[in-house]
Write a protein that binds this DNA or RNA. Structure first.
Lengths: 337, 337
DNA sequence: CTGAAAGCGCTAACAA
DNA sequence: TTGTTAGCGCTTTCAG
């Protein structure tokens, strides 16, 4: 009753075609144990001619883990995460693993849903940029799978992670502005991430160290979307005492700020300087080119994937917190005044 | 011997905790058949307190299909595909499905590997932007799963698809240039996709209809990467008789062309006009803003996801080829000369 | 070196 | 209405 019809071939079919047992087929396919060369060949040929594809679901069920890792970020359209995802995907491709992609939109509910999905799917591992809420209540209900944190910081848990020194980078960027003669330096920081917080802290510290009494309304927070950056920057620029420089905490916020500046016909940097994070293509395409902190985005992703893959190979190894170096790229948008 | 240890709870554990059979648990979780409210409650509570997550691998094995769709594109960093992926992800999220992401890099080998992975994973469906090779030899070995083609065209097979009228759009864009007085119009088209071909065809047709004898070296082909666009445009601009306008077949090629133009200190549009496809953010951030064909990228993605989800719900429905409208957005980079 | 058989966790007949 | 049970396709003892 093997009514084979159109069904994709199973290991049984291969076994039958090769005249061996399923165990033997499994062995040659996994290259485990020794099999007589002759049989091995028969099996390989049978598999070939039936275009046999081992059923991953069955494998995962048996192995209690899958061949897949998940990548959970706030929004793939954020160029930082776009580059990151590509790096992750490349590394997984090289290992024959697949990657699930999830966007949280910095929304804890959406994030929760994905975390559940992820444990239901029994993914092998997770590369994860948690929302601030999740970072703060980590462990509460984080799925019990190997996890590498990227871009953000979660304290009080022992996990692999890859970050840049966000506070330091923001400090450096702000100092650069100060040294170039800017004083009324405003910032638009990511509202939902620890990264935004850290950059804010570095920014504040630089101001403090230069004895700048900072007007509270110059530090604002926005969601990482162009529109939100534009709105936030617009408010800043319309202040009675507007800033003479604006820092965007990521390329979307910076782009939004640029739009707001353009709309008001202000010239950069004469009337207002602009600087930001992430060396996205557009930052050198616009006039004047924009000063940025250049994060090694691809490298962050590949390092994260590497850490995860290594942990999968050896779950007992001690965790590593990798801090990659970001670089200040000074351009005309922050020329000395 | 239920040594439960740290293992994630299974349906058995829930059944035991609720004092019912696994079948009952399955029923209440799937909302199938009737279960006494009292039992239903007990089951729900047990599941809750054990933080039970149904094992998807087991479900997939049983159901012979998974809860996942795959998205296979050339490069997620191409803004067109970035937006597309986000749309797909949103639609799947709404259905509680997950999405696999794969980048082919227009490399048939890499594509093949993903197609195999995809059939091994028994994904429920596929949203797919095939390389030209795959498009031409379609069916040869395409996995037997519901597939929606996006962005590209594959002939001779009966599949759902979502495209824009690429030839028409290129025709429109070229005509716009011609009407604005440009004559030596060059183009940098995607080398590896049917989309590039179609746009080339539309471009050629517009030239022909205007009686332009086209210098063959003005139509060039490049991989969809900024660097390649830059190189291709550089060659164009260094020609003894350089073009007075350049069309980029996608935002990466257009960005590359812009760089090449800038490097040579040429002014846009006085010395050379520039136009392209995809209304990426940077096109309005630069000076002058760039004329583009604006594709409804998000809508393309959500339509594709919709078509796929509908087909999963009803595999027998007839296929649909959806053609979405792209829009010419004329800006200063192609002002009349 | 090879095969038989026991499950992995779940759903859906089929029984009760 | 509920429970028992037979697989889904695979890997891995355990025998032979």
């Amino acid at each position: 009753m093997t009514e084979n019809g159109k069904r994709t071939a199973t290991i049984k079919d291969v076994a039958a075609a090769a005249g061996v047992s399923v165990a033997t087929v499994s062995r040659v396919l996994a290259n485990k144990g020794f099999v007589r060369p002759e049989l091995r060949l028969r099996v390989l040929e049978a598999a070939q001619s039936l275009s046999y594809q081992p059923n991953q679901a069955a494998r995962s069920l048996r192995a209690r883990t899958s061949n897949t890792i998940a990548l959970l970020v706030s929004d793939i359209r954020n160029p930082f995460f776009t580059a990151l995802s590509r790096a992750v995907e490349d590394a997984c491709y090289a290992q024959g693993m697949s990657v699930f992609l999830g966007n949280t939109d910095e929304d804890p509910r959406r994030e929760r849903m994905y975390l559940d999905l992820i444990s239901a799917e029994r993914v092998a591992g997770l590369i994860y940029s948690p929302t601030r809420e999740a970072a703060e209540a980590f462990g509460e209900s984080h799925p019990d799978i190997p996890t590498v944190i990227v871009d953000r910081v979660v304290s009080g848990v022992d996990l692999d992670s890859v970050v840049i020194d966000n506070a330091g980078a923001a400090y450096q960027l702000t100092t650069h502005l100060l040294e170039n003669g800017y004083r009324r330096i405003a910032g638009v920081f990511g509202a939902a991430s620890t990264t935004g917080q850290a950059r804010y802290a570095g920014y504040m510290q630089a101001l403090r160290e230069h004895g700048i009494t900072h007007a509270a309304q110059w530090a604002t927070f926005a969601n990482p979307r162009i529109e939100d950056g534009r709105t936030a920057a617009a408010k800043l620029l319309d202040l009675p005492e507007p800033p003479d420089a604006i820092i965007g905490s990521n390329s979307l916020l910076t782009a939004g700020a640029l739009m707001a500046i353009r709309e008001r016909g202000l010239t950069i940097p004469a009337q207002v300087a602009l600087a930001g994070f992430d060396d996205d293509t557009w930052t050198t395409l616009v006039e004047p080119p924009i000063t940025v902190i250049c994060q090694p985005t691809y490298e962050i992703g590949s390092t994260a994937a590497e850490l995860l893959l290594q942990r999968l190979a050896d779950p007992t190894r001690s965790t590593r917190q990798v801090m990659l170096k970001a670089q200040l790229v000074a351009r005309a948008s922050t020329a000395p005044r």
